[in-house]
Simulated assay, not measured.
Amino acid sequence: MKMFILSILVAFLYHLIKAQFKSIFLDILIFSFVITSHLIFSYYFLPIELLIGLSGANILYTIFKKLKDKKTMKDFMKYFIIGIGEVNFLTYLIYMCMSLAPLFHIFIIGAEVSSGKMVIIILSLLWGLFLTFARIYSKLLK
Protein backbone atom coordinates (compact mmCIF):
# COMPACT_ATOMS: atom_id res chain seq x y z
CA MET A 1 0.00 0.00 0.00
CA LYS A 2 2.88 2.36 0.77
CA MET A 3 4.37 1.70 -2.66
CA PHE A 4 1.07 2.52 -4.37
CA ILE A 5 0.65 5.79 -2.45
CA LEU A 6 4.27 6.72 -3.13
CA SER A 7 3.77 6.00 -6.83
CA ILE A 8 0.72 8.27 -6.94
CA LEU A 9 2.68 10.97 -5.12
CA VAL A 10 5.59 10.71 -7.60
CA ALA A 11 3.20 10.89 -10.57
CA PHE A 12 1.45 13.91 -9.07
CA LEU A 13 4.73 15.71 -8.37
CA TYR A 14 5.93 14.96 -11.89
CA HIS A 15 2.68 16.39 -13.27
CA LEU A 16 3.09 19.57 -11.19
CA ILE A 17 6.70 20.04 -12.27
CA LYS A 18 5.81 19.38 -15.91
CA ALA A 19 2.93 21.89 -15.78
CA GLN A 20 5.21 24.52 -14.24
CA PHE A 21 8.13 24.28 -16.68
CA LYS A 22 6.52 22.94 -19.92
CA SER A 23 9.84 21.99 -21.49
CA ILE A 24 10.95 18.85 -23.30
CA PHE A 25 14.46 19.38 -21.92
CA LEU A 26 13.15 18.72 -18.41
CA ASP A 27 11.69 15.43 -19.62
CA ILE A 28 14.93 14.49 -21.33
CA LEU A 29 16.91 15.39 -18.22
CA ILE A 30 14.63 13.39 -15.89
CA PHE A 31 14.46 10.42 -18.26
CA SER A 32 18.21 10.24 -18.86
CA PHE A 33 19.11 10.72 -15.19
CA VAL A 34 16.62 8.15 -13.92
CA ILE A 35 17.31 5.54 -16.60
CA THR A 36 21.08 5.91 -16.12
CA SER A 37 20.84 5.49 -12.37
CA HIS A 38 18.46 2.57 -12.89
CA LEU A 39 20.93 0.83 -15.20
CA ILE A 40 23.96 1.54 -13.02
CA PHE A 41 22.49 0.44 -9.70
CA SER A 42 20.17 -2.28 -11.11
CA TYR A 43 17.19 -1.91 -8.79
CA TYR A 44 13.44 -2.18 -9.09
CA PHE A 45 11.36 0.50 -7.39
CA LEU A 46 7.85 1.11 -8.72
CA PRO A 47 7.80 4.92 -8.38
CA ILE A 48 11.06 5.19 -10.32
CA GLU A 49 9.72 2.88 -13.03
CA LEU A 50 6.62 5.04 -13.19
CA LEU A 51 8.77 8.16 -13.55
CA ILE A 52 10.72 6.56 -16.39
CA GLY A 53 7.50 5.67 -18.16
CA LEU A 54 5.90 9.11 -17.70
CA SER A 55 8.94 11.08 -18.84
CA GLY A 56 9.59 8.75 -21.79
CA ALA A 57 5.95 8.92 -22.89
CA ASN A 58 6.03 12.73 -22.68
CA ILE A 59 9.19 12.86 -24.78
CA LEU A 60 7.62 10.67 -27.48
CA TYR A 61 4.35 12.61 -27.33
CA THR A 62 6.16 15.92 -27.80
CA ILE A 63 8.25 14.61 -30.69
CA PHE A 64 5.25 13.13 -32.51
CA LYS A 65 3.19 16.26 -31.86
CA LYS A 66 5.91 18.41 -33.42
CA LEU A 67 6.15 16.07 -36.39
CA LYS A 68 2.39 16.16 -36.84
CA ASP A 69 2.34 19.95 -36.63
CA LYS A 70 4.82 20.09 -39.49
CA LYS A 71 2.65 17.66 -41.49
CA THR A 72 5.60 15.33 -41.91
CA MET A 73 4.27 12.49 -39.77
CA LYS A 74 2.77 10.73 -42.77
CA ASP A 75 6.04 10.96 -44.71
CA PHE A 76 8.02 9.98 -41.60
CA MET A 77 6.02 6.77 -41.12
CA LYS A 78 6.12 6.01 -44.85
CA TYR A 79 9.90 6.31 -45.04
CA PHE A 80 10.29 4.50 -41.71
CA ILE A 81 8.41 1.48 -43.07
CA ILE A 82 10.25 1.65 -46.40
CA GLY A 83 13.58 1.82 -44.54
CA ILE A 84 12.77 -1.30 -42.54
CA GLY A 85 11.66 -3.09 -45.69
CA GLU A 86 14.87 -2.34 -47.56
CA VAL A 87 17.09 -4.63 -45.50
CA ASN A 88 18.91 -7.16 -47.63
CA PHE A 89 17.39 -10.58 -48.14
CA LEU A 90 19.77 -12.45 -45.83
CA THR A 91 18.99 -10.07 -42.96
CA TYR A 92 15.29 -10.45 -43.70
CA LEU A 93 15.61 -14.24 -43.49
CA ILE A 94 17.47 -14.00 -40.18
CA TYR A 95 14.77 -11.70 -38.75
CA MET A 96 12.03 -14.05 -39.96
CA CYS A 97 13.78 -17.03 -38.37
CA MET A 98 13.99 -15.08 -35.12
CA SER A 99 10.30 -14.28 -35.48
CA LEU A 100 9.34 -17.92 -36.00
CA ALA A 101 11.66 -19.27 -33.28
CA PRO A 102 8.99 -19.33 -30.53
CA LEU A 103 6.69 -21.40 -32.76
CA PHE A 104 9.56 -23.77 -33.49
CA HIS A 105 10.24 -24.04 -29.77
CA ILE A 106 6.63 -24.99 -29.01
CA PHE A 107 5.70 -27.19 -31.98
CA ILE A 108 8.99 -28.96 -32.70
CA ILE A 109 10.62 -29.15 -29.29
CA GLY A 110 7.31 -29.54 -27.49
CA ALA A 111 7.71 -26.96 -24.74
CA GLU A 112 4.69 -26.15 -22.65
CA VAL A 113 2.76 -22.99 -23.41
CA SER A 114 2.29 -20.41 -20.68
CA SER A 115 0.77 -16.96 -20.80
CA GLY A 116 4.21 -15.35 -21.08
CA LYS A 117 5.13 -17.54 -24.04
CA MET A 118 1.81 -16.70 -25.71
CA VAL A 119 2.62 -13.00 -25.47
CA ILE A 120 6.06 -13.64 -26.98
CA ILE A 121 4.51 -15.72 -29.78
CA ILE A 122 1.98 -13.01 -30.61
CA LEU A 123 4.63 -10.27 -30.58
CA SER A 124 7.03 -12.29 -32.71
CA LEU A 125 4.33 -13.10 -35.26
CA LEU A 126 3.33 -9.44 -35.41
CA TRP A 127 6.99 -8.56 -35.94
CA GLY A 128 7.23 -11.10 -38.77
CA LEU A 129 4.08 -9.77 -40.39
CA PHE A 130 5.36 -6.20 -40.08
CA LEU A 131 8.68 -7.17 -41.68
CA THR A 132 6.91 -8.88 -44.55
CA PHE A 133 4.54 -5.93 -45.02
CA ALA A 134 7.45 -3.48 -44.96
CA ARG A 135 9.38 -5.55 -47.48
CA ILE A 136 6.42 -5.71 -49.87
CA TYR A 137 5.62 -2.02 -49.35
CA SER A 138 9.19 -0.96 -50.06
CA LYS A 139 9.33 -3.06 -53.23
CA LEU A 140 6.07 -1.60 -54.52
CA LEU A 141 7.19 2.01 -54.02
CA LYS A 142 10.62 1.62 -55.60
Rank of each mutant, 00 (worst) to 15 (best):
M1W: 08
M1A: 15
M3W: 07
F4Y: 09
F4V: 15
I5N: 08
L6A: 07
S7C: 10
V10E: 02
A11H: 00
F12R: 05
L13T: 01
L13H: 01
L13M: 07
L13S: 05
Y14V: 01
Y14Q: 00
H15V: 05
L16W: 01
L16D: 00
I17P: 01
K18V: 03
Q20G: 07
I24W: 04
F25A: 10
L26G: 01
L26R: 00
I30E: 00
I35S: 14
I35C: 12
T36Q: 08
S37F: 12
S37C: 12
H38M: 12
H38T: 12
I40C: 09
I40F: 10
I40T: 07
L46Y: 09
E49F: 15
E49L: 15
L50S: 05
L54K: 00
L54S: 04
G56C: 09
A57C: 13
N58T: 06
N58L: 15
I59T: 02
I59H: 00
I59M: 03
L60Y: 07
L60W: 10
T62E: 09
T62I: 11
F64L: 10
F64E: 11
F64Y: 11
K66P: 06
L67Y: 08
L67V: 10
L67K: 06
K68H: 15
D69T: 13
K71L: 13
F76W: 07
M77K: 15
M77I: 14
F80D: 12
I82Y: 05
G83A: 02
I84P: 01
I84T: 01
G85F: 02
E86C: 12
V87C: 14
N88V: 03
L90A: 14
L90Y: 10
L90G: 06
T91Y: 10
I94E: 02
M96E: 08
M96S: 09
M96Y: 07
L100Q: 03
L100N: 02
P102E: 01
H105T: 14
F107E: 09
I109L: 12
G110R: 05
G110P: 01
I120G: 03
I120C: 08
I120Q: 04
I120A: 10
L126Y: 06
L126A: 13
L126W: 04
W127H: 09
L129P: 04
L131P: 00
F133R: 04
A134V: 00
R135E: 03
I136T: 03
I136W: 03
I136P: 03
Y137I: 03
L141N: 11
K142Y: 01
K142F: 01
